Computed example of a mutant assay.
Amino acid sequence: MTGYDQILAEVCATGRRLTRAELESRRLLGERAAETGVGLRVLVRQHLAATRTIWPTLGSVDADRVLAAVEQSIDAFAEGHERAQKLAVRREEAARREFIDDLLYGRSDLGRLAERAVRFGLLLTRAHAVAVCQGGTPLDDTDPATRQVESALVARFSERRVLLATKGGLLICIAPADQEEILAHFAKLAHAATDGGRVAVGRAHPGPGGIVHSYEEALHTLDLAERLALDGPVLHAVDLLVYPVLTRDRQAMADLVRNTLGPLESARGGPQPLIDTLTVYFDSGCVAAESARRLKLSVRALTYRLERVHTLTGVNPADPTHRFTLQTAVIGARLLGWPQTEL
């Protein structure tokens, strides 16, 4: 309130408006008040109380002149207060974004990271799991879907230590490992809010490094789901552990694909139709009738394709002793993007 009584007296005596310097001084005081935690409601009340105290000393001044000066002063004060609040929000958002980056990439000192995590509701001494949602369009913090999911999570799990963020166009949820219902509810909300977006859930791991590990598992699961055309709105990394094992030795997998499926390149129309046939055949439990139905073929046409595979590769899809090798090669081809990508 510094200088308010003097400004009010001069303005009312002369009938002038507040000068630019006076308005800026009010804005600066508003900023300082916000920085010290004084609410705008309190400040308005103080201005009105001060005006009531000063008014009798102003003499027979026109009420409109007094109220106009009060309005200008409070407006400038409120502008400074709001400016400081917006700056604080931007700083908080920047700090939160920096923390998310450091947390998910493991770039910061672990001790310092743990201290910062408490500020955002995480206890890094516990085990955590990460779920990631990929929508039809990239998501950010201002996206309506993000706000919708965040509001619903806060409403249901307000007392839990949950962190929701966006990164690289994905919606991310980090939750304690012993509270599986949080990620399950997040998956349901995110799938609905993004109009059918896919959610991947990493395994739970302890410590700050565990969050990075779980996050990377969730990302890898999304990648696998796309390359293998996996069904289901929610996929769990724990259910797909065999695929990282298969691709751990990429060169060995490439050799298997090349040696087993390479002869299919001589087929009319290329190898892709026969690989698609094998994929559906294995996904159908090697049941010819079901495979034919899914491919919209006759059983006779399906049988012809399988016989063609046998002729070209020397491996019989219907023979249990050959089936594992052929199915592994088909999975490897999908993981490596063959034949679109050269091995």
Rank of each mutant, 00 (worst) to 15 (best):
P56L: 00
A117K: 00
R116W: 02
E24G: 02
L110Q: 11
T36E: 11
E98N: 12
A34E: 15
V118R: 13
E35T: 05
V44H: 13
H81K: 11
R65D: 00
A50D: 14
D62E: 15
Q85C: 04
V118N: 06
I74E: 09
W55Q: 07
V61W: 03
E79S: 09
D62W: 05
Q72K: 07
A114M: 03
D102Y: 00
L87P: 01
D102E: 13
R97N: 11
S108G: 06
D75T: 14
E93V: 01
L104S: 06
V42K: 05
D75N: 13
R96T: 04
E115Q: 11
R32W: 02
H81G: 10
R52D: 13
D102L: 03
F77K: 00
A117W: 01
E22W: 04
E98Q: 12
V66Y: 01
I74P: 14
I100K: 06
R52E: 15
R107T: 14
E82I: 04
L87H: 14
A114E: 14
E92N: 02
A76S: 11
R41C: 03
A114P: 00
R91E: 14
A78D: 06
L29M: 05
L110S: 12
R112I: 11
L23A: 03
R116M: 14
R45I: 06
Q72F: 01
R32N: 12
S25H: 07
A21P: 08
A94R: 14
